[in-house]
Amino acid sequence: MYAVSIGKFTKTKKPKSKKVYRCVKRTKYTTDDPSRIAEDAISTLRDAGTGMRFSGMEEFGEAHDFWNDGHECPDDGPSDECERLELETCRDWIEKRVRELRKGESESLHLVLQDGFTEFIITGR
């Protein structure tokens, strides 16, 4: 069983605020399905836009040809196919990492956006 908490934070507009960010939305759920968690995480990346990755996952793009054996990106930059393959690789990594979580262990994924960030925390139960 896994507990998932997804928080969306935005910068506060008041310069005198004690906290720089405030939570604008929090979603929580529990599940036994690591693939559901991975797909929810990838949906967060898709919603954020092309090329968006959780902190620490940038290497999935930088080592694209390594992660996706036989695929070559076009000379003029990554294509929609490149994006799809990178997201699949990220999904596979997240699902594998979730399966490795023991009771009480957590994995935190952070997506930095222009006006805030999204925090995706998975905890083994």
Rank of each mutant, 00 (worst) to 15 (best):
M1F: 03
A3L: 10
V4P: 00
V4Q: 03
S5D: 11
I6F: 01
I6T: 05
G7Q: 14
K8H: 14
K8W: 02
F9N: 08
T10E: 15
T10Q: 12
K11F: 10
T12M: 04
K13C: 11
K14A: 15
K16H: 13
S17V: 07
K19C: 05
V20L: 11
R22Q: 13
R22S: 11
C23D: 07
K25C: 09
Y29R: 06
Y29I: 05
T30S: 10
D32N: 11
D32C: 04
S35E: 14
I37Y: 01
A38L: 05
E39G: 01
A41N: 05
I42M: 08
T44D: 04
L45R: 04
R46E: 15
A48H: 05
G49Q: 04
T50E: 11
G51T: 03
M52S: 10
R53V: 11
F54H: 00
S55L: 09
E58Q: 12
E58T: 11
E59W: 08
E62G: 06
D69P: 03
G70T: 04
H71M: 02
C73K: 12
C73S: 14
D76S: 05
P78D: 09
E81Q: 10
C82F: 03
E83R: 00
E83Y: 01
E83P: 00
L85G: 06
E86R: 07
E86G: 02
E86L: 07
E86F: 01
T89V: 08
C90H: 10
C90S: 11
D92S: 15
I94G: 06
I94W: 04
R97S: 13
R97F: 09
R97L: 07
V98R: 01
E100V: 02
E100A: 09
E100R: 08
L101S: 03
R102P: 00
E107A: 06
S108Y: 05
H110C: 08
H110A: 05
H110I: 10
Q114H: 12
F117E: 03
T118I: 15
T118M: 13
F120S: 01
G124C: 00
G124N: 03
R125A: 10
R125D: 14
